[in-house]
């Protein structure tokens, strides 16, 4: 009995050590690849940044209006920095995928073809997301300033409405692009957006009834002057 137990234990240890001996080099290879990816990413980031600065890329972006567009998305870095960071992350992710394959774990073999196959949709979704956030911030800020200058009391609410409508649109488009819950998102978005518009229409209809009446009355009774306007010229 003790011989059998001993044999079984030794066999298990032998198998484990064989597996470990087979896995350790893979693990080391993975760690090395991750480290290499990190270093390559950082080096490439520096190179890209320097080259772009040498080519006066930031100034070109300012001239074309991209610099200000980045500001509106909340990015405080120059465009050359941003391209550098994106490059380093791209390189690192590529090395990370190769590293995962090096582990030879079941399921990781088809990872690279799968990721490469999914890359176009992911890139398209990323571009839509960035453009959507940019547009939401840009139009939100424009709406806020315009509403304040028009002295609309609910200026901030109107601006947030513009911003979140565009963000909702963007998220729906991003998820559709990624193929996640296509029909569910379409239905959810239609219900939410339709409901929102209906709610706004009812709110405006009920809340603005008196205002609308006043405006029509004012328009029809032009002989009754409203609050007197300024009469001086600003220029």
């Amino acid at each position: 009995m003790s011989e059998l137990w001993k044999e079984t234990m030794l066999e298990a240890l032998r198998t484990a050590s064989q597996k470990l001996a087979h896995f350790l080099p893979n693990l080391l290879a993975m760690l090395s690849l991750l480290l290499l990816g990190l270093v390559a990413g950082l080096v490439l980031r520096g190179i890209v940044r320097r080259v772009l600065r040498g080519l006066r890329f930031d100034q070109l972006c300012e001239r074309w209006g991209f610099g200000q567009s980045l500001l509106l998305t909340g990015m405080r870095r120059p465009a050359s920095d941003l391209v550098g960071i994106l490059t380093s992350w791209g390189v690192f992710l590529f090395f990370a995928m190769v590293a995962l394959e090096a582990l030879e774990l079941p399921g990781t073999k088809s990872l690279i073809p799968l990721v490469i196959g999914f890359l176009p949709q992911t890139l398209a979704a990323f571009v839509i997301l960035v453009a959507g956030i940019f547009l939401a911030n840009f139009l939100g800020q424009a709406a806020l300033i315009a509403a304040v200058n028009a002295q609309i009391p609910t200026a901030r609410l109107a601006a947030q409405g513009v911003r979140w409508t565009i963000i909702l649109f963007t998220l729906a488009m991003v998820l559709t692009q990624l193929g996640i819950g296509h029909s569910l998102i379409l239905a959810a978005f239609s219900i939410t957006f339709g409901g929102l518009i209906l709610a706004l229409a009812i709110a405006f209809g009920l809340g603005g009834r008196d205002l609308a009446r006043e405006m029509i009355e004012r328009h029809l009774k032009k002989d009754q002057p409203e609050e007197k306007e300024d009469e001086f010229r600003h220029l």
Binding site: E62, G67, Q68, L71, L72, F138, Q141, A142
Partner: peptide
């Protein structure tokens, strides 16, 4: 310094 979009 283009801190904010010019028109805004």
């Amino acid at each position: 310094q283009r801190r904010v979009y010019h028109d805004h």
